[in-house]
Design a protein around this nucleic acid. Structure first.
Length: 265
DNA sequence: TAACCTGTTCACGC
DNA sequence: GGCGTGAACAGGTT
């Protein structure tokens, strides 16, 4: 489930592996779905190039090539990357593979084919066309407040909208609203300034901590709601980490939502 | 087995 | 035109 912290962790991983190596080949098993541009155009765009830098906005990753163009990556709902040398180590569902002159490979793992690659020339124009607003780690309080004030939908849906703020996905939004003690069904435009401030602060805190822990939720504080989502732990509790009351699990804005009826009025 | 889940886009209604 | 809502996408997991 790559949200902002996972994508930032992938960015750092790629920085430590594939940067400054010549791309000599590439293969893809379903180009029409997985590539945003024609396959021959994509391959001619990356072949012979090296990656010399990177930029991340929300869940969007841009790898700077040595000819002033960018390799775009989006990890969809289940994407991952793995750097390896021996063909035997090729990970399962590596539907796209980059080959480098060092003999190493990068597998782009796409279990559900929601992942996307492209080559683009203008990052800002690309983000504008996709209506991606400022990244969670960059957005100012004034801009955040302006966005929340103008939207009438439930606050959970508004925070998930990448044109409001970029990088929030389903577990982060639940975590943020839990820590801010805001009910996820609250109408966004009805939030008072102090409530928006609580959400803003929780959002920055959660994302910064998740990046610091390399998106490994096992290492998140016990006070975090994420431990009640039931991922990984065989004896997980669906009780509130704060008041210990049973958590509500229901659809809000069409998405599965964990929250505490007692703590999030 | 069939329902569920994830991020994004798109169609639709207002 | 823009907002809000919900379906669709694909396939692994439960």
């Amino acid at each position: 489930m790559p949200e902002l912290p996972e994508v930032e962790t992938y960015r750092r991983y790629l920085e430590g592996t594939i940067f400054h190596q010549k791309i000599i080949d590439f293969e893809v098993d379903d180009p029409k779905k997985l590539l945003l541009i024609p396959q021959d155009e994509f391959i001619s765009g990356i072949k012979g190039r090296q990656i010399i830098g990177s930029k991340r906005v929300g869940k969007n990753l841009f790898l700077e090539l040595d000819n002033r163009t960018w390799l775009y990556m989006h990890f969809g709902m289940s994407g991952d990357v793995h750097y390896y040398k021996d063909t035997a180590d090729r990970p399962k569902h590596a539907r796209m593979v980059f080959y480098f002159d060092s003999g190493f490979k990068l597998g782009f793992i796409c279990p559900r084919k929601f992942e996307r690659l492209s080559v683009i020339s203008d990052v800002d124009a690309f983000l504008k066309k996709k209506k991606v607003n400022a990244d969670v780690t960059e957005i100012t309080f004034e801009e955040f407040k302006r966005q929340l004030n103008k939207r009438k939908s439930v606050v959970k849906s508004v925070l998930l909208d990448q044109s409001v703020v970029a990088g929030i996905g389903n577990w982060i939004v639940d975590e943020v609203l839990f820590q801010a003690k805001i009910n996820p069904s609250t109408k966004s435009h009805s939030l008072a300034d102090p409530e928006i401030q609580l959400i803003f602060d929780a959002m920055k805190n959660v994302v910064n901590l998740a990046i610091e822990k390399e998106a490994n939720y096992v290492h998140f504080p016990d006070s975090y709601l994420i431990h009640a989502r039931g991922w990984g732990k065989p004896d997980f509790e669906t009780t509130c980490p704060n008041c210990k009351q049973e958590l509500a699990v229901e659809k809000v804005g069409g998405r599965t939502t964990y929250y505490c009826l007692n703590c999030q009025k």
